[in-house]
């Protein structure tokens, strides 16, 4: 396991991940609302949910340190709350839960893999708390089959966007 102490450069990179994620999270609201009308609940989750899970794989791929996934997602949610309060402070609650779930993705590999696969897994795992919190807050509770489809759609979307953002971060010229 690599040293978990964050240097000033790590903290600055975390800020970069936070602000980029915050901007993407804010844009995701419009994408979600439009796609829900055009593609229904499952389509909307596939198209847009992964955008809200990108903070964790982005930060983790840049920093490659334990807790970076959690902090990236949480910071992105905090920035989203402070720049455009579409979801209010619940964004922070979502960010906290999704960040913890994504962190599990990297923990699964004992913090040894920071590639596209671990990024996709981190993105996919964030789908579980997102659907759970949707059920609690927005009353989005369907039949067991519907719920399973939503979880799968959120996880697939998370995996796709997680892989994309990890690939982008890993191909940086450093």
């Amino acid at each position: 396991m690599r040293a978990s102490r964050f240097t000033s450069i790590d903290l600055a990179l975390l800020a970069v991940a936070g602000v980029i994620s915050g901007v993407i999270f804010t844009a995701a609201w419009t994408i979600y609302n439009v796609s829900e009308v055009l593609a229904g609940p499952v389509g909307a989750r596939i198209i847009s949910y992964g955008l809200w899970f990108m903070g964790a794989p982005l930060a983790a791929s840049l920093l490659k340190k334990p807790l970076s996934a959690f902090l990236g997602e949480f910071l992105g949610a905090l920035v989203e709350t402070l720049i455009a309060p579409a979801g209010g402070i619940t964004n922070v609650i979502y960010g906290f839960a999704q960040g913890l779930a994504s962190e599990l993705g990297y923990l699964t590999f004992r913090y040894r893999r920071w590639d596209i696969i671990s990024g996709a897994l981190a993105g996919a795992l964030a789908g579980l708390p997102a659907v759970g919190l949707d059920a609690q807050l927005f009353g989005v509770v369907g039949t067991p089959l519907e719920m399973s489809l939503w979880v799968i759609a959120a996880c697939v979307s998370g995996a796709i966007y997680g892989a994309v953002v990890s690939a982008a971060a890993l191909s940086l010229r450093k």
Partner: peptide, 13 residues
């Protein structure tokens, strides 16, 4: 450290 990251994020915005 986290407070620095949040403050720096707003500087970067």
């Amino acid at each position: 450290g986290i407070a620095f990251s949040i403050a720096y994020a707003f500087r970067l915005f």
